[in-house]
Computed example of a mutant assay.
Amino acid sequence: MYDVWIKMLNKELKYVHDKGYLQRHPKLQPKMRAILLDWVLEVSEVYSLHRQTAYLAQDFFDRYMLTQENVSKDYLQLIGITALFIASKIEEIYPPKIYEFAYVTDGACDMWDIQRTELQILKALDWNLCPETPISWLKLYAQVEARKDEENFLEPQFSQETYIQITQLLDLCMMDITVLDYNYSVLAAAAFCHFSTFDIVHKVSGLTWESVSHCYQWMTPFMETLQSEPKPQLKNFPKVRADDRHNIQTHVAYLDILVKSNTGQLSPVAAGTILTPPSSTEKPPTH
């Protein structure tokens, strides 16, 4: 267990993310990133993709943008859907086909666009595709906190209901580009702390209050807004076992909730002005 922990911490040093990348893209604004990631979560739910897949896509997108300059908003959807395509091939046992990812762009991107962009992203990231996401850390913290000595550590023991509430907080925070100021381990710890106590968070993470407090306070407006929203409910997905439902990415009206949080990072704007959302939540016919 100690060796695993050290490897996860080392990845925090290797996989660098920085919100300052927007300075390299003068035509882009934080709200454009938020709209794109909201759509990525929507597509993830349509195809019953795992939370880890969606969070890998977010990481790939942000790190790729850090390597580029002067990207136009017209290319954001292509980059986002390609990042999700790459992530699904890494994380999913049965990933959707490339034509299915093209389908949900409603004609904005075709398969050749995605294939070309896939190679560009892989080269830019130097094939470094295995970060420990906030979801990775959260699952570890939750499992350590719930573990009983006589039980198999690899079998989840934590409450699915509480887990999906914490992940909803992380989802909302992901929309705000300021999230990139924090290490993923700290993000997961701060979110966990909003549903627990810091004593427990310290026990499962080893982090000090000094290292978590700023992130915890930054999250507070998001948490307060979510408290006025309906609590997330476990959903059933075709071909997904009941004990795996909490791991499937879900989507709610995150952009509306983000505006309510009064963070100043996002102003109300129609999603269609940035990218073309799926025309429906139906999957394309398979052959």
Rank of each mutant, 00 (worst) to 15 (best):
W39V: 08
L41C: 13
E45H: 04
Y47A: 06
S48L: 10
L49T: 15
H50P: 05
H50L: 12
H50F: 12
Q52G: 11
Y55R: 00
L56I: 13
L56K: 13
A57F: 14
Q58C: 11
F60I: 14
F61E: 09
Y64S: 07
Y64T: 15
M65A: 07
M65L: 12
M65E: 08
M65G: 15
M65S: 11
N70R: 02
N70E: 12
N70L: 03
S72H: 12
K73V: 11
K73A: 14
D74G: 03
Y75H: 14
L76C: 07
L78I: 07
I79S: 04
I81H: 13
I81G: 12
T82F: 08
T82V: 11
A83M: 08
L84S: 14
L84F: 11
I86E: 10
A87V: 14
K89V: 09
E91D: 04
E92S: 04
E92Y: 09
E92D: 06
I93D: 00
Y94C: 02
Y94R: 02
Y94F: 08
P95S: 05
K97W: 13
Y99D: 13
E100C: 00
E100T: 04
E100H: 02
F101N: 00
A102I: 04
Y103G: 02
Y103D: 00
Y103W: 06
V104Q: 00
T105M: 00
T105E: 02
D106L: 05
D106M: 01
G107C: 04
A108R: 05
D110I: 06
K123G: 07
L125M: 14
L125D: 14
N128C: 10
C130M: 08
C130L: 12
E132Y: 15
E132F: 14
I135F: 09
I135Y: 06
I135A: 02
W137K: 10
W137L: 11
L138W: 05
K139V: 10
A142M: 09
Q143L: 07
Q143Y: 03
Q143A: 03
E145V: 04
E145N: 07
K148L: 05
K148I: 03
E150F: 11
E150Y: 14
E151S: 08
F153Q: 00
F153D: 08
L154W: 08
L154K: 08
E155V: 14
E155H: 11
P156D: 12
P156E: 13
Q157P: 02
F158T: 07
F158I: 01
S159K: 14
Q160M: 05
Q160S: 04
Q160C: 00
E161C: 00
T162H: 08
Y163S: 01
I164V: 11
T167S: 04
T167V: 09
L169M: 13
D171H: 12
C173A: 13
D176R: 13
I177A: 06
I177H: 09
T178F: 06
T178C: 07
V179P: 08
